[in-house]
Design a protein around this nucleic acid. Structure first.
Length: 872
RNA sequence: GGGCGCUUAGCUCAGCUGGCUAGAGCACCUCCCUUACAAGGAGGGGGUCGGGGGUUCGAGUCCCUCAGCGCCCACCA
């Protein structure tokens, strides 16, 4: 639990300032362990947060600051309500983005065939072109990944500290660290044992640049130019059938033609065969409901594999696989065995070894020559599937991959996962629909194996038979106490290194797990699943998952899948979806778009509190424009808080605060205006509390800010004269009310402006404001007694009229007023009478007169030695 | 094609379960160097709440419909 802060000097500076406030307080918080998790707290006293681990491969931009600040305000609120807040930070440092960054940063590339070089040093000057990158061993490569991520993580941690995130750094984790690797592998092995993980030889979406498989959740559609090619197939009777295709180069992979079963044009052809042009391969004409009579000629060419529909057709119609595009995205150099004529093989040779685009051009020529290309190409724009981080269209490649069951091929499981969504409260609520929609639309299991290096290895070996062929049906697995394990360097139980890669021995599974397959376990990693059962017991399931709404389909869903399989319930109670930061052109701010704004300069210019104010003003789930003006407003608010606090504490006896106000106010609050203000304050506390309970930090801030400004403009102005006077009852009432209000407002602002509030709190209170108790409206109402909130409204209204008169007369606000005459119903006049003394003081008014009238309210202001100004 | 969200002052947005003359900040105009605050403060102008229907004593707020914008998803031959 938090230690007391080093005792501040408890003096109020002559000229309060925000300069250097971040360094001053973040250092003291660290020293005092202000934000440390109290792991003696029981589950019901804990609030645990499943922090998104930022990808360390880039730099943090203001979008990160935006969403992490929002979460931090909630963490701070919960801490002040007495919860022990479990708020770890994780770094997502494994996976493709890190590899890419390391490759470019050092000018290296990983080559598994290169031997380890203990004396290796990265090139001083990285090569400009990828082709010139130095090939290094897997172990050297991983070493560089670790080195660079460590440096990056330190920069990130410094920024978070400067921003004032109240994370407990002692609970930090990384997704490549031992704990994460162990957790990830253990979960995988448990899935394997329960049948939730399996490997299969199947067509999968394949990125030809990274040369690895990608999962459904990583797909992105890009609008790409293409063209319909109308080509003819020959029927045995000499007739032809025309088909439109955008990928004529796949003709060699054609295994059938397909049309809709109800399409009368093709019903006579079903069950017959046709011959492919150029290659002369005989293929059947089949019927399938997915063929769209409206598209092209209504008949389509099924190739292995042009798109995901081809995969469906291939699977459901039991067609042979005639794949020719290899893992490098190029056509195989050898003519495939199903081409049985020399002419066909010669034709193939003209595009063998080419990538899709090159082969297409050649194929078009071949078809033109053979007379099977009819008419002109018809250009179109059509969506093509890409890997979200890739820049070439995906190919579909047949290969052995690992899968985790996610309901994509199991209706009952899909329904169960949709149901799990009901175990979570969504903020905002409509985000649940995105989750349900995604789960309902799944069409395959989750492909988790990646043909990469820097990641969590799949903890599996395969037995080799006497011929040296792997047996994929019975994986050799490590015992859990071996975890984390690297199958490349360690051996399966009961076997030794001499049997590696030998007939009758074993081989290591070459792949690693996709990043999401590890980050989908952040609750288990952070809470110490199996590693630290005591911690797990106190923190899991977690209270809150904050994240961006764009990764509901990936991170949120996959975390649900894992928790469902491992624990049989949802991993959290609340999911809080943050919006994006949009640049001034309303585009999402992201590194790949090159429109990011780095936060450090902003934090220094506007102060962390100023930037936090902007972030916390963004409504939950709503995309928000990047707006420096809001940060300026936040900075002004922070300065105002310093000045207003200084002023209110400048009166003797206001400084009687204690860390938590006791049951009684320092002095009795007796004056009507003071009581009126306190009633409003109590209402504010209720509103802010309700908003925070519903994860709506933005509303809490908005209401607090609104109250604070009118508190300064009106109440403070109205009572300062009275508070200055020598201490009679009315004076003491003002000072007590000021102290109560100040203490309350400072705490209400604490989640948003942690630095400024800590500063002003230190002037008069013991301990950190961030471990102080959240304000309690009931005790404020006790102090307020019979307060009538309307009094403050009336007084502020009259004061505004007086100011207006002075402004219109172009005189100073302290100009003397001879008299004001208030008109209105008796009730209004009675209210004015109760605050008349404060009004006289605040407006420098000699005389307050009243005239009862049934008409609307009026205020007539007579300035001393100045022509009367009517200012109703 | 399906789902979700948005459309309120020049700009960025609040307006929760329908209720007194529709709010804030920025920008703009005027004034004030008032001992908390001049990188301030006080005051002011500015909106037929996207269009059209409907429910209601009463709608920015509920229902229907149309339009525009954005996001997500889809089997994209």
């Amino acid at each position: 639990m938090a230690e007391p802060l080093p005792r501040p000097d408890r003096t109020i500076p002559e000229k309060p300032t925000l300069d250097g406030i971040e360094a001053r307080w973040s250092g003291r918080w660290t020293a005092a362990a202000t934000y440390d998790f109290d792991r003696t707290a029981t589950r019901d006293q804990v609030f645990s947060i499943d922090t998104p681990p930022p990808t360390v491969s880039g730099s943090l931009h203001v979008g990160h600051v935006f969403s992490y600040t929002q979460t931090d305000t909630i963490a701070r609120y919960r801490r002040m309500t007495g919860k022990s807040v479990f708020y770890p930070m994780g770094w997502d440092d494994n996976g493709v983005p890190t590899e890419r960054r390391v490759e470019n940063y050092y000018g290296v590339r990983c080559d598994a065939t290169v031997p380890y070089d203990a004396a290796f040093e990265a090139p001083a000057e990285p090569a400009k072109k990828r082709n010139d990158f130095v090939a290094i061993s897997r172990r050297n490569f991983i070493g560089l990944c670790e080195q660079l991520t460590h440096e990056d993580e330190q920069v990130f941690a410094d920024l978070w500290t400067y921003l004032g995130l109240s994370v407990d750094w002692s609970t930090m984790y990384t997704t490549i660290g031992d704990r994460a690797r162990r957790t990830s592998q253990r979960a995988f092995l448990r899935h394997l044992a329960s049948g939730n993980a399996y490997s299969a030889e199947a067509p999968c979406m394949w990125d030809v640049t990274f040369q690895m498989a990608v999962s459904q959740a990583e797909l992105e559609d890009h609008e790409e130019p293409g063209a319909y090619h109308d080509i003819t197939f020959a029927r045995p009777n000499g007739e032809t059938i025309m088909v439109s295709t955008t990928r004529p180069e796949l003709l060699v992979s054609c295994v059938a033609l397909v049309a809709h079963p109800d399409d009368e044009r093709y019903q006579p052809l079903f069950g017959t065969t046709v011959t492919t042009p150029v290659f002369g391969v005989e293929v059947p004409v089949l019927a399938h409901r997915l063929a769209d009579p409206e598209k092209g000629t209504g008949a389509a060419m099924i190739c292995t594999f042009g798109d995901t529909t081809d995969v469906t057709w291939w699977r459901e119609l039991n067609l042979p696989a005639r794949a020719v595009i290899g893992r490098d995205g190029r056509f195989g150099t050898e003519a495939p065995e199903w081409l049985d004529s020399d002419a066909a093989r010669e034709a193939y040779a003209t595009f063998a070894g080419k990538a899709a685009n090159g082969a297409r051009n050649v194929m078009v020529e071949l078809l033109r020559e053979s007379g099977n290309l009819i008419g002109e190409l018809r250009p179109i724009k059509h969506p093509v599937k890409f890997y979200e981080k890739g820049d070439k269209p995906l190919e579909i490649v047949q290969s052995r991959q690992w899968y985790i069951r996610n309901g994509g091929r199991d209706e009952a499981m899909r329904r169960r996962l949709v149901e799990r969504g009901n175990e979570v409260t969504w903020h905002p609520g409509y985000m649940q629909a995105r989750y349900s929609d995604w789960v309902s639309g799944l069409n395959g299991d989750w492909l988790v194996s990646r043909q990469r290096y820097f990641g969590v290895p799949i903890p599996v070996w395969h037995r080799l038979d006497a011929e040296g062929n792997p047996d994929y049906n019975a994986a050799l697995v490590p015992t859990e106490d071996m975890l984390p394990v690297d199958p490349q360097t360690e051996c399966p139980p009961g076997m030794d290194e001499s049997q590696r890669n030998q007939p009758g021995g074993f081989i290591a599974d070459p792949d690693i797990l996709d990043t999401w397959a590890t980050s989908s376990l952040t609750p288990q990693i952070a809470c110490g699943w199996e590693d630290d059962p005591d911690l797990f017991e106190r923190t899991f399931p977690m209270d809150m998952r904050p994240q961006g709404h764009d990764i509901i389909r990936t991170w949120l869903f996959s975390t649900m899948v894992r928790s469902d399989a491992l624990h049989g319930h949802a991993p959290w109670r609340n999911a809080s979806l943050a919006g994006w930061i949009l640049d001034p052109d309303r585009k999402k701010m992201s590194k790949s778009k090159g429109n990011v704004v780095t936060p450090r300069g902003l934090l220094e210019q506007y102060g962390s509190d100023g930037v936090r104010y902007w972030a916390a003003s963004g409504r939950p789930g709503v995309d928000t424009a990047f707006d420096e003006k809001e940060m300026k407003v936040g900075r002004r608010l922070s300065i105002k808080l310093l000045n207003a606090s200084k002023f209110a504490l400048s009166f003797e006896d206001s400084k009687l605060g204690t860390a938590a106000f006791g049951a009684a106010a320092p002095h009795a609050v007796t004056e009507p205006l003071d009581r009126a203000m306190l009633v409003g304050l109590a209402g504010l506390v209720d509103e802010a509390t309700t908003a925070f309970e519903g994860f709506d930090y933005a509303r809490a801030l908005e209401r607090t800010e609104g109250f604070f400004w009118s508190f300064c403009d009106d109440y403070l102005e109205l009572v300062k004269g009275r508070a200055y006077l020598p201490g009679d009852t009315a004076t003491m009432s003002a000072r007590a009310a000021l102290a109560i209000a100040l203490s309350t407002l400072q705490r209400l602002f604490a989640p948003f402006l942690p630095f400024a509030t800590e500063e002003v709190w230190s002037w008069w209170m013991e301990g950190s404001i961030h471990t102080a108790t959240w304000p309690d409206s009931a005790s404020i109402r006790e102090w307020a007694g019979d307060g009538d909130p309307a009094l403050l409204d009336v007084a502020a209204d009259v004061l505004r009229s007086v100011r207006r008169a002075k402004t219109e007369a172009k005189v100073s606000m302290k100009a003397e007023v001879e008299s004001i005459t208030i008109g209105g119903p008796a009730a209004r006049l009675a209210a004015v009478a109760r605050v008349a003394a404060d009004l006289r003081e605040a407006g420098n008014i000699a005389e307050v007169l009243m005239v009862e009238s049934a008409d609307s309210d009026t205020v007539v202001v007579v300035l001393a030695e100045v022509a009367p100004a009517d200012a109703d």
